[in-house]
């Protein structure tokens, strides 16, 4: 049995006191321990931003790459190690702005990777500018007269892309979030978990209190069928007085790895190194 404490890291934490990221970190540790994964069996890939520091605060394999480039790096790491658990993490700017194109194509590709997006609707590390999910009219450093670009609905985008697992969590509800993350990791295919993550320093609108008054647990609604894509689309767009958390959409489909690996194949990185002879390949041109 693996304990959540097995994932503790000695690295100094650079998050603000009270940051929503702490809730995500704790939920992730609980989820991984619950899945009985050893730290060395997990690779985390992240981009840049406060959220993207999360792999350092865990004991796991980590590739902390570039802002926005989390998905491609995670895909490469997964293809070299398809028998390992690969989890990607980053913020809303990382995932939906700089990484928007990669996010869309990751869903098309459908590798067995879980993507945790810490969505605080603001740019934190650059000290308070608008993000793709910032609400209309919000005053930020770069929108002094209020944000005029309509916010993206990442969950609706994911449902539209037929993403194989689409969920929303709330950093203020660690227990539910850890269940969602565990389900996402267990799900075979690309899983998006958009996490409502209060930024206590720069987002004075979407606070813990603001979310607590609005979120409800969709997983407790027995009548809701996450396999129904049309209903999932409607649910994904629900935002305002009531905000659903839980599994919005779920769909089984072949993963990318199925197109290249047989079930018995070891990870590429652990296969014997036996390349073909160049002269033999060249003879085909004689």
């Amino acid at each position: 049995m693996v304990l959540a404490s097995a994932y503790n890291s000695a690295d100094d934490n650079a998050w603000c006191p009270g940051c929503g990221n702490f809730g995500v970190l704790q939920a992730l540790k609980l989820a991984l321990a619950g899945l009985n994964l050893e730290p060395w069996q997990v690779i985390m890939v992240s981009g840049i931003g406060q959220a993207a520091k999360i792999p350092h605060y865990l004991k796991v394999n980590c590739f902390n790459g570039l802002h926005g480039r989390t998905m491609p790096a995670a895909f490469g790491a997964k293809m070299a190690n398809h028998k390992m658990t690969v989890i990607a993490a980053g913020g809303d700017g990382d995932a939906y702005a700089e990484g928007g194109n990669h996010f869309v194509h990751a869903m098309r590709r459908n590798p067995d990777i879980t993507y945790l997006v810490h969505d605080n609707q603001i740019y934190g590390l650059t000290k308070g500018q608008a993000s793709p999910t910032t609400g209309l009219g919000t005053l930020t450093g770069t929108t002094p007269f209020g944000s005029v670009d309509i916010p993206e609905s990442p969950l609706a985008v994911a449902v539209a892309m037929d993403c194989s697992f689409v969920a929303r969590g709330f950093a203020g509800d660690i227990e539910h979030l850890s269940k969602i993350i565990a389900a996402a990791v267990k799900h075979r295919g690309f899983s998006l978990v958009d996490i409502l993550q209060p930024c206590v320093t720069f987002n004075k609108v979407n606070t813990y209190q603001w979310y607590k008054e609005r979120v409800y647990n969709l997983d407790e609604d027995a009548a809701y069928d996450p396999k129904d894509r049309n209903k999932a689309f409607t649910k994904a767009l629900e935002w305002g007085d009531r905000i659903p958390t839980g599994i919005i959409y779920k769909r089984e489909r072949p993963v990318f790895e199925d197109s290249v690996f047989k079930p018995a194949d070891k990870s590429l990185s652990r296969q014997p190194f036996t390349p073909p002879d160049s002269l033999e390949l060249m003879r085909k041109y004689a």
Partner: peptide
């Protein structure tokens, strides 16, 4: 951009 980041991810991955 994706192409090179994928290749680097795979290089980190050991291939």
């Amino acid at each position: 951009i994706a192409a090179i980041n994928m290749a680097i991810g795979a290089g980190y991955g050991g291939v």
